[in-house]
Design a protein around this nucleic acid. Structure first.
Lengths: 317, 317
DNA sequence: CTGTTAGCGCATTCAT
DNA sequence: ATGAATGCGCTAACAG
C-alpha cells in the first residue's frame, strides 16, 4: 500500500499539500491540486484510516455485542444497525456473547481504543456497566447510571390484551418464563388492560415463574375444562412456535380455539401462518441510536421504545 | 484514557520498560516490573490498539461482507465466524450488501487499512476481485485468480438423488431457479446420480431456467398425472418453505406423496417439520478460513467444501 | 499558497 | 537492565 509520502514525492509537493487536497482542498493552487490527484490515481492511494484514527482519537468503529439467546433474532438488529451505521461512515464490529462473563470479556476486548462506542443487545442477565460510551439495548435493567434503550413491555402487554379483547377473546392466558426478564412489566400491562376492560384477573391463567413454557402450557391444558381460555400471550416468536404445535396436539386450533399472541415479533415465513404480535421497529431503533452516537450533546440516559401491533391478514389466501 | 507516558511517569521508569513489561517481559528487574504493574492497575491502563496497529501494520480486523439474498442465512455464517475469529484475537467487521455495486462499495470502504483481510459471502452475481487479501465464500465463481471457498453443489445434488432413490423415490423433480447460481453443477450431480442408479433422465422434471419456483412447481403439478414425480429437489430452505405449502394446497402430502429435499440447509424450528437436506458445516468452514488467515504461507486459491446429508427423524414424536 | 515541524501512542532499535 | 531516540502515516499549527 502506498503512503502519503509516495504521493507527495510523485506529485512533487509536500505531504501537507497532499493532505490538504484530499481533505477539504481549499487554498491550493490548481496546478498542484491536479498533480496530487494524478499521483493519487496513479498509485491508487487511499489514506490510511489507522493513522487518521491515531490522530483524531476516534476510529468510527461501533462495537455491537449480541447477547440474545435466540441468535436468529439478532439478524434484525444487525441488519438495521449496519444500514444506519454505514450510511454515517461508521463500522460495525460484531461480537456474540451468551453469558455475563462473555459479555464482560467482549466489552473488555473492545475497550482498547478500537471502538468509539459499544452496544450491548438483548442481555437477559443483570449487567453492571458504568462506561459512558456503552449503550444497553433491550437488556435487563440493572444500575440506572448507564445509557439504555428499553422496550416498553408493559405497553406491549396492554396492547396485546386490548387487541385480544376486541377480538372477543376475554380469557387471556399468559405464559412468560422468568428467563425472559421484564416479568413485572408484562404483568403490569396485563393487569392494566384487564381492569380497563372490566375483566377479572384469574391467577390460574398466569404463569410467570415457570422455567419451561411447555410445562406451563400443559398445566393450562390439563385444566382447560374449567379455565376455558381462548387466547394465549407468550414472550416471543420462539415461544409461540414452541407452543402452537403443543396446542394443536391437544386438538386446539390456532387461532380458531386459541389465539396465540407474541409479545416480541412474529415469524414471517411463507410456509408458517403469521400470528398477531407486537413488533419493534428495528429501523426506528437503529436510527435513534446512530443519531445519538453522532451528536452526543444530549444524554440519552434511558429511552423507551414502543412496539407496533402487527395483525396478520387472516384470509390472505 | 491513560497512555504509556502516564504509566511510565507514575512507575518512575521509561516508556520502553513499560512496553517491555507488558509484552513478553524479559530482561526487566523485578522491582520495576512490579512498579509498572502497579501503575498499570492504578491507572487502569490498556495499550492503545490503534497505535499498535499503526506500528505493526495490521489491525486484527477481518471485514465480512454478507451478500446473501436471504439475510437469515447469514446468521449461521456470522456466528461461526465470530466464534472462530474472537478465539484468535481477531475482530469481525460486518457489512451487508445486496448488489454488486454495494459489494464493491463496501470493499472499497474496508480497504483503507482498517481490515487485514476481507470475506465476501454468498454473492449470487459475478464479482471480479483481484486483491490478494479477499476471500470469496460461496460466491458465484468469476475470475479464478482470487482466493475462494466453494461449496460442492454437484456433490450435494448427487447425494440428494442417491438418498431419495434409496428411499424408493425414483421420479425426482428438480427446481433450481437461475438466480441461485451453480445451475450447471447441480444438473451435473443430478445426472450423475440418475445414471449410476440406472434411472432415465426426464427433461420435463427439471426446471433450471424458471425465474420463479412457484411457476415451475405449478407446471409440475399441472402435469402431475403423467409425470408422477414423488420427490422434489429445491435450492435451499427458503425455496423449500415456499414450495411445501403449495404442494399441500394441491393435496400432495409432504413427505408422504412427495419428499422435498433442500440442497442447502433446512429450517430447524420447533413448529416446522424438518426436511431432508444437505447442510454445510459453518464451523468447519469458519475454522478453515481462520486457519488460513493466520498462516498465509499456503495459497488457499480454491477450496471446495462438501455438505453433510441431514435426515430428519421421521417419527420423532 | 506551501513547506517544515511536531506529535498522536506505541514497540523497537541502539546505546549505555 | 533500562533510557533515549526513531518512525509507523497522518493532520494541524506555524512559518514563510
Amino acid at each position: 500500500m502506498s503512503t502519503i509520502n509516495d504521493v507527495s514525492r510523485l506529485a512533487g509537493v509536500s505531504k501537507a499539500t497532499v493532505s490538504r487536497v484530499l481533505s477539504g482542498s481549499r487554498g491550493v493552487k490548481e496546478a498542484s491540486r491536479q498533480a496530487v490527484l494524478k499521483a493519487v490515481d496513479e498509485l491508487n492511494y487511499r489514506p490510511n484510516v489507522i493513522a487518521q484514527s491515531l490522530l483524531s482519537q476516534s476510529t468510527g468503529c461501533i462495537g455491537v455485542i449480541c447477547a440474545q439467546d435466540n441468535i436468529n433474532q439478532s439478524t434484525g438488529y444487525l441488519y438495521a444497525l449496519e444500514k444506519q451505521l454505514s450510511q454515517h461512515q461508521k463500522h460495525l464490529l460484531l461480537r456474540f456473547a451468551n453469558t455475563k462473563a462473555e459479555v464482560m470479556n467482549a466489552l473488555e476486548e473492545l475497550s482498547c481504543g478500537l471502538c468509539d462506542d459499544i452496544l450491548i443487545i438483548g442481555a437477559r442477565f443483570p449487567l453492571s456497566v458504568d462506561q459512558e460510551n456503552v449503550i444497553l439495548v433491550d437488556c435487563m435493567q440493572a444500575a440506572d447510571n448507564v445509557n439504555s434503550i428499553q422496550f416498553d413491555h408493559a405497553f406491549a402487554a396492554e396492547t396485546a390484551c386490548n387487541f385480544l379483547t376486541s377480538q372477543g377473546r376475554r380469557q387471556i392466558a399468559l405464559i412468560h418464563p422468568q428467563g425472559s426478564g421484564f416479568a413485572d412489566q408484562v404483568l403490569l400491562g396485563y393487569k392494566h388492560a384487564l381492569e380497563k376492560n372490566f375483566l377479572p384477573f384469574n391467577r390460574n391463567l398466569v404463569f410467570m415463574e415457570a422455567t419451561s413454557s411447555s410445562v406451563a402450557l400443559q398445566e393450562l391444558l390439563n385444566n382447560a375444562s374449567t379455565l376455558n381460555f381462548n387466547a394465549l400471550l407468550v414472550a416471543d416468536e420462539q415461544e409461540a412456535q414452541r407452543v402452537i404445535p403443543q396446542l394443536q396436539a391437544f386438538n386446539k386450533s390456532v387461532p380458531g380455539d386459541i389465539m396465540v399472541f407474541s409479545l416480541a415479533g412474529s415469524l414471517h415465513l411463507p410456509g408458517i401462518p403469521t400470528i398477531p404480535a407486537i413488533e419493534y421497529s428495528m429501523d426506528a431503533m437503529a436510527a435513534r441510536i446512530v443519531s445519538w452516537l453522532n451528536e452526543k450533546t444530549q444524554m440519552l440516559e434511558s429511552w423507551v421504545l414502543r412496539g407496533d401491533l402487527i395483525i396478520p391478514e387472516i384470509r390472505k389466501r
